[in-house]
Design a protein around this nucleic acid. Sequence first.
RNA 1: GGGAGUUUAGCUCAGCUGGUUAGAGCAUCUGCCUUACAAGCAGAGGGUCACAGGUUCGAAUCCUGUAACUCCCACCA
Length: 901
Amino acid sequence: MTANSELDKVYDPSELEGKWYAYWLAQKFFEATPNSEKEPYTIVIPPPNVTGILHMGHMLNNTIQDVLVRKARMQGKNACWVAGTDHASIATEAKVVAMLAEKGIDKKNLSREEFLTHAWAWKEKYGGIILEQLKKLGCSCDWSRTRFTMEEDMSKAVIDAFVHLYNKNLIYRGIRMVNWDPKGKTAISDEEVIFETRNAKLYFIQYPFTEGEGSIIVATVRPETIMGDVAICVNPNDERYKSIVGKKVRIPILNKEIPIIADAYVDAEFGTGALKITPAHDKNDYEIGLKFNLEVIDVLDENGNLSEKCGIPKYVGKDRFAVRKDITKELEELGFIQKIEEYQTQIGTSERTGTVIEPKLSVQWFLKMKDLAQPALDAVETGEIKLYPPKFNNTYRIWLENVKDWCLSRQLWWGQRIPAYYLPNNEIVVADTPEKALALAQEKNANYTQNDLRQDEDVLDTWASSWLWPISVFDGFKPAEETENHKDFNYFYPTNDLVTAPEILFFWVARMIMAGYEFKGKKPFENVYLTGIVRDKLGRKMSKSLGNSPDPIELMKQYSTDGVRVGMLFSSPAGNDLRFDEKLCEQGRNFANKIWNSFRLVKMWNVADENTEKTISNAQKQRGEIAINWFKVKFQQTLQELTHLYQEYRISDVLVTVYKLYWDDFCAYYLEAVKPESMETQLVDKHTYAETLNILEDLLKILHPFMPFITEELWQNIRPRKEGESICIADYPVLNEEILAKNTKENFAEKGKIAFELVTEIRNARNSKGISPKVTLKLTLKNAENNLENIYFNDFLGIIKKLTNVEILFADEKPKQAQSLMAGNQECYLELGIMVNVEQERQNIQKELDNLHKFKMRILGNLQNEKFIQNAKPEIIEAERKKLTENETKIVALEESLKSL
RNA sequence: GGGAGUUUAGCUCAGCUGGUUAGAGCAUCUGCCUUACAAGCAGAGGGUCACAGGUUCGAAUCCUGUAACUCCCACCA
């Protein structure tokens, strides 16, 4: 009875995954507490939106984090991966408003408190979904540390930070042009505006001169804002208009007089070369308005409807786009429209609500960024913080050098309310609690009571909490006495690696760096790994609206979680967009299956005892011995490579390297070489068996960060394990210099390479002649002294025999009807047992000789070139000479075979 | 408009400071139900390294120009 029958032929993850994840949690393997004897390794998750559900971007991102964390944990570090969610003020508030609307509740009819009650209820009900999904992905987060950016402590940190910055005079209130989202009724940041190319119309409107005949024609896409016009601007060098600068025109319909001014900003080539200046509704116009000290007339209200100020009662309260139509019609009827052209323009829309953004003047809170940016700039410049790939350094620098002040306020309720209080005389006090605010107020006037204080209605931008994330998750803002003198913070901060999408390099990464230096005088992390964007096969970004994103949970069901994790990481180097194809997951699944079956094979074997040991042939034992030596070297060399690749964060290269080691070297060569001779007894000697288990165990360990579930299952079954043991916390293999040194002496790796090349040649010859692998062929090695020691790779002869089904002979002469093969410098003859087509064989050899001669000419071209000898590095010249010798040996051998045909 | 990046096999990507006859995986083709795995085994074919110049003994690699694509920033009404 073999173990074979106990194990399924196909890897079935359905029960394993849940079982092992539960075990890991129960054993608290992922929980980390400060321990001065262990080196910490910390990652804070980029907190997904609390409204979020897992998408392919998360899959990529979190798989990478888990690989890093699991590896660090196995390397004995105190690995701490902090998870949590972001309150995402706009997105969440939008969802809650929509949910309420479905129930027939209008936000307008709710008080702030009522609304927040609904919002919290919603959060409690739906907020944790994504975290549960991350567990499915196998993420080894310390769930006991899960945070939410709006929980009390976290919010307190945000408020404290605000007060700190305010007191440093870095926060100010200003009238600014902001991107107004009329649907969300909030200002949004530049980064949240998406420009879309849309078809629009360009209206050519006449503004008649106040004196004399004629008019100036202005091209605009926004006729509904003419009531907000305060000037017409032309380029000072524009010959057409030079004479009229300083004159006045009348706004059609409104009949208001405005001046013609000149400024170099205006492009004479565009439209008519005349621009209407509407400071309240265009950023550039606003700038010009400031320069010329022009009035600002805001003709729109917060809903995007025309306001009282527009001066035409019938339009007041009407939607901006409706008014555009109406006013166009009216202008046309009155003859003010010269023409209307079709026009393509970039229109800013809100990332969150999709509405067309309205540039709007409003009072907002701003954070001065210039000083904060400097340390962040330096940190990356000096390499104190490293970005992977480094190509992002440039983008980062340029952005920070031109950083603009950060608009902190949002006209929403879901978020941290701005801790600013207005006094009856409109003075402002800022403090973290109403009590302290009152105290401050009373310094101004002792008679003030709490009732005199009116708190600002706005909340802070979501990023005002996320930028503190690496600090606040470790309670870095809490007083020392509440946190055992910042025990967690001091131990886990600065964190090690941050893994995130390049889209939020500025929103989030740069700001976290600023916050780190500003509040703690220390960087928040050392390395930033920027992932690529996950796209579909056609290169389109995956999005809900396109419906081109697969459901990650379904994928994991179909291909196993390990399979999908592998699929995500195959060929997705840092910073490169990933063109996702389910084929990749299939490949991952196949790999899992391969691993599964290699394990089955080993499980089938029976270990020899004292009695049976002697029934095992020496040949089998010898093969085992050589294969073990060879593979151990191979493993060490790979391990060396992996260290290097991990250091450079080349995660997919790590995966591909391990994949090849497992599939090609371990399965195709090692296991095939070591396999028992007798399929009845399946006997292997003790030594081979023990070493095979060791090798398998090491392989599972280096695979574990990528494929946590299958590796745990197999690791648990390799040998008996005790409760509380796990591959999660097993020691990651360390480099063994001894094995590598031994190899330099004995050349296992190189000998194996030549031997396996010969194997391929033999198989190829067999294959091309259509000879079944079952037929044993004769392989004769040319060997003058008939001395095994003369053959460089003699240790591997047994393995060659096993892998190719040949009988190995020695002779000086080439047997009749044999095909010549070269293994390194060793000439071999393979008898295929069929008539060799002499002419065909001659041609083959001749072709090979021609190639060798061509190559020889190239080498000689170098070696006979004086300049090459003068300029090339000695080791290059040496290499060329070696090539030449090898080339010549091969030529001699082939010429001999040609003669003997 | 400004800046950055990319372009290597049918596809996705390696190729570090110039020095093997340019590599891998997938896909394709051929042959195999060979005593773990057909989600597999064995083997093969496939590239003027985007294009044009230049530097060099030597260029996928460095320089210049051109083209295509991508991203970021700005936003000509």
